[in-house]
């Protein structure tokens, strides 16, 4: 299955993964091979099923709306690449 170069660029933007120009053809080829595999699904007869099935019948558990987590800001921020005064630092967003 062929995927256009533009399609790969769009996916790279959506997934926030920078793809080097020189590898786009290779990436497209390998993605195409996987999509060819998953396209076998289209031939499956699913008419016996009602609408979209989740495959999982489990329902989500509910709990009381109570605070159960303790504040671990310092411990959790200790692993961050860059913090200041309890905040995560990123490059300036506003021009």
């Amino acid at each position: 299955m062929n995927i256009e170069r533009q399609e790969i660029e769009k996916l790279a933007t959506l997934a926030r993964i920078a793809i080097d120009e020189s590898t786009i053809t290779e990436v497209a080829e390998r993605l195409g091979s996987v999509l060819e595999l998953v396209d076998q699904l289209q031939a499956a007869d699913t008419s016996s099923l009602d609408g979209v099935s989740s495959g999982m019948q489990a329902t989500q558990r509910l709990r009381e709306d109570e605070v159960t987590e303790i504040n671990q800001r310092e411990a959790l921020q200790a692993t961050a690449p860059d913090t200041e005064e309890g905040l995560f630092l990123v490059p300036k967003v506003i021009e």
Binding site: A12, R16, I17, A18, L76, T79, A80, P81, D82, F88, V90, P91, K92, V93
Partner: peptide
């Protein structure tokens, strides 16, 4: 995404560049 934990690229020029 390089913000809260794990690897972060060098010298990101903006937030999108940091993520990507």
């Amino acid at each position: 995404d390089g913000v809260r934990y794990g690897y972060r690229c060098e010298d990101p020029k903006d937030l999108t560049d940091l993520y990507s």
